[in-house]
Simulated assay, not measured.
Amino acid sequence: MPISRAVIATDSGARLINRLCKHWAHKLEVEQEESQGRVAFDEGACLMRADGEALTVAIEALDEAALDRLEGVVASHLERMAGKEPLDIVWEN
């Protein structure tokens, strides 16, 4: 299973995790604790963990094509949830 990871500089990581988990909980299996969350998609999973300086996001997918799709979905949702805060999301495989 291919894995991709991004470390995103932000002091609002816990808030972003909370917003994303609430957003996706209507359609997907979501687990959330204080400053971490897990979202299960049909073709993989997204793990998120926040500290005071960064949000770390890891995606595990069934194949490379699914990984590419999930990177796009997660990044676009993070940017939307961040509002005016610019996020520099760089995926590392």
Rank of each mutant, 00 (worst) to 15 (best):
M1T: 08
P2G: 10
R5Y: 10
A6H: 04
V7D: 15
I8G: 06
A9P: 12
T10N: 01
T10D: 01
T10R: 01
D11M: 10
D11S: 15
G13I: 09
N18M: 15
R19E: 15
L20D: 01
C21H: 03
C21F: 03
K22Q: 13
K22H: 14
W24L: 11
A25E: 14
H26N: 07
K27M: 13
E29F: 10
E31P: 01
Q32V: 13
E33Q: 15
E33I: 15
E34P: 05
Q36C: 10
G37C: 00
G37M: 00
F41V: 01
F41Y: 02
D42A: 12
G44H: 00
A45S: 12
M48A: 08
R49L: 09
A50H: 02
D51F: 08
D51W: 06
G52T: 07
E53Q: 13
A54N: 13
A54H: 11
A54D: 09
A54G: 11
T56N: 09
I59S: 00
I59A: 01
E60D: 14
E60V: 13
L62W: 06
L62A: 11
D63I: 02
D63V: 02
E64P: 00
E64S: 06
A66D: 00
E71W: 03
G72Q: 01
G72S: 01
V74I: 12
A75D: 05
S76A: 15
S76C: 07
S76Q: 14
E79V: 09
G83F: 02
E85L: 13
E85C: 14
I89T: 10
V90H: 04
